[in-house]
Design a protein around this nucleic acid. Structure first.
Lengths: 226, 226
DNA sequence: CTGACGGGTGAGCAAGCGCTCACTCAGCCT
DNA sequence: AGGCTGAGTGAGCGCTTGCTCACCCGTCAG
């Protein structure tokens, strides 16, 4: 076990966050629908789905309450849209983080943790809704969300298994450990506060270090230039 | 960094879970109030505070809707009671886990993680309410919850700092790492499913191992007999 | 026995909710 | 210019909700 303190793993060079971390999950929506969804996300995150009124969403979007129904058939459909786009963003992020040139699993996993954590912190409002309101989703929307989550988890688990097979990682139960790793990253959305003392990037770096330790990897491997 | 796979840390002897892990947070309430609170916890956990009706709570408790108000002044007061008792239980658990005879910090922290995780899994319904409904609490109840959470976190952080000072742990920022450790344990309540393949104890053992790695401890230390 | 008290009820209130509907209006196309 | 379409509105509906209130009943102490 390394005796080096777990300071945030410093990268060989300063790099901008990858574009996908900053991408807005709702950017492609038409203007009014986007205002509705953004207003809904704020209200859902602050008050929960059920305590959010259609009047509140409409006001935030600059519409009358009836205007909401021009674009969405129901309040629940708005939540379904938020959930689907949020989960798709998360899956795309993880997929992109893990793809590309051949690199050690340790490097890839450090990168995916950084990106995932950064996204959860920066988009903590959206992520909070995506994580916390599964039970409020209509059945079809919920099934879609569960599927997307499983696919995201499977990508990470596959990389953990590759790392184990290559002798880079020391993990006895890749499934359980992957779940713990993702749990750690996801929970950032619950506690993260923009007024806190650390930036999303600092938290992401620390988490990359912690996760590599969880995986039994040599943390120095995670600092290799990408 | 150890190359041993992170299997669940096996203890030198099989021990029953400490009594505090199994203690019911609501055991000391009068009969009817206890039925109300238990019914409320089930409904709040499944549907959220706002989507839970007083009629639902009353029905679960075997009362008429008006009967609820004989014991609690409002629906929100029921939530306040759940939150306070749940947080007090968590604090007591951590406090008891960390107290007693002199032992290495590594051993203590492994124990507190085991107990905390076991409690969150076994009482995942209560824990889910306690963790997820902070924003639904009335201001005074919320302030009380925040205080209890800080005290719980402070206990664990103090032990991490002791471990660092004694050279048992390799942690650069005890505060941030403690928060990550507690985050990992708390999130169990969100994903834990009694129908899953692992028991609370198995999850707790795995988590003790993972946390000791996060802390940069030699995992063999965590298996010392308590 | 009687009155007080605690626990509980049925009925119903005021407020608010998600949603509908008839209608308006601006922009675009022929 | 006229017609059509899509976006949006004000008004209001039926229903639900948290809660109140007058009343009931069983128990217990004096």
């Amino acid at each position: 076990m390394s005796t080096a303190p777990p300071h945030a793993v410093r990268r060989a060079s300063t790099r901008a966050a990858p574009p996908q971390v900053d991408e807005d999950a709702f950017a492609d929506l038409p203007d009014t629908a986007r205002r509705i969804v953004r207003g809904a996300v704020e209200a859902f995150a602050a008050r929960g789905f059920h305590a959010t009124t259609t009047r509140d969403i409409a006001r935030r979007a600059g519409l009358s309450p009836a205007g909401l129904y021009v674009h969405y058939p129901s309040k629940a459909a708005v939540l379904g849209q938020v959930s689907r786009l949020g989960h798709e963003r998360a899956l795309a992020l993880v997929s992109e983080s893990l793809s590309g040139e051949q690199r050690p699993s340790v490097t890839r996993l450090a990168a995916v943790v950084r990106d995932f954590v950064t996204w959860h912190a920066r988009h903590h409002t959206t992520a909070r809704v995506v994580q916390n309101e599964l039970d409020a989703l209509a059945p079809l929307d919920r099934a879609a969300a569960v599927d997307l989550r499983r696919r995201t988890e499977a990508l990470v688990e596959a990389e953990v298994r590759r790392g184990v097979a290559r002798g880079e990682l020391a993990v006895a139960d890749p499934h359980a450990v992957t779940r713990a790793v993702l749990s750690l990253c996801i929970d950032v959305a619950r506690w993260y506060d923009p007024a806190g003392r650390e930036s999303p990037t600092e938290i992401a770096d620390l988490y990359a270090t912690l996760v590599l330790r969880m995986l039994g990897a040599d943390p120095a491997r995670g600092t290799e230039t990408r």
